Computed example of a mutant assay.
Amino acid sequence: MSVVRPEPLTIRSAEDQVYEALRDQIIHGLAPLTPLRLNHLAASLAVSTMPVRVALRRLESEGLVTTLPRRGSRVAPLRVEDIEEIQMMRSRIEGLAARTGAPNVDEVGLAEMRRHLASLQKSIKSKDIDGYVAHLRAFEDVCYQASGWPRLTRMVEDLRRSAERYLRIAVAGGGDSVLTSRFWERFYDAVEAKDGAAAEGALNEALMWTLEWIREYLTGSDQNPVPNANKPQRVAKATTKQ
């Protein structure tokens, strides 16, 4: 008797869609302290208030939203201690992914890393933060996925997304010099040499360099990198179905 193997489900719940829509907007620059009013969000996203409540609780657990009794929810402020914690965790977790993945990257993977590194360098020259983030993530993933540890790579992705908000706002505030390829060139050389320790070292240098840039920006910033940042920003609509 043959065993029926079900196909992976692709239908997402309304809660997941609302969560992803709000998380994406916060990470991509929804200003710190922007109010997240329940009824307004539900109307904007064309859902009832229940999936919005669930999404806000999830975002609060990730440190992206703060909620106060009788005052509602708002986008969490950017705090130096939070990005320090995130980068230190990334150092350990991504460091493990780099160390275990580097010896396993084959020639096909190396060619893919070279392509993304070249695209990353072009994004730096054009100050394209979207391109930089996308190509850096794809570049790293070749190595991380070669570790063969899917739980580890999922943890890496969660932490990278948490850090991305800080990077984007720092760059928007004039800190585009934080975008550099020199650490990633060394990272590639280490992977090509199948030297996991050197790959981890290059990664950690990059993480600490970025942390210093963001720390400097936050300590000298009023956290208003865009005009009218203290005014409620409109939350874009998402296609959701209950």
Rank of each mutant, 00 (worst) to 15 (best):
E212K: 10
G220H: 14
N228K: 09
V235N: 01
N228S: 07
A238Q: 00
P232H: 12
L203C: 06
R215P: 01
P227T: 14
L203Y: 07
Q233I: 00
T240L: 13
I214Y: 04
K231F: 03
M208F: 11
T240S: 11
P225D: 06
P225C: 07
P225V: 10
R234H: 04
L207G: 12
S221A: 10
W209V: 00
V226A: 07
L207K: 10
W213R: 09
Q233N: 04
V235D: 00
R215C: 07
K231V: 08
L218G: 10
Q233M: 08
K241A: 08
E216F: 00
M208S: 05
I214H: 03
K231D: 09
Q223I: 05
T239D: 13
L218V: 12
T239W: 15
V235G: 12
T210M: 09
N224I: 04
N204K: 15
V235F: 03
R234N: 02
L207M: 09
T240Y: 01
E212I: 04
T239E: 15
S221W: 11
N230G: 06
L218W: 14
W209N: 08
N230H: 10
E205K: 07
Y217L: 07
I214E: 08
T219K: 15
T219F: 01
A229E: 06
E212T: 03
V235Y: 04
L211D: 04
M208Y: 03
A206E: 03
N224T: 11
A229W: 11
T240W: 01
T240F: 00
M208V: 11
N228F: 11
V235W: 02
N224W: 01
N204Y: 01
A236T: 01
G220C: 09
R215E: 15
A206V: 03
L203M: 10
T219S: 14
K241V: 14
Y217W: 15
V235Q: 01
L207W: 02
A238P: 04
A238S: 11
A238R: 09
W209Y: 14
K241E: 13
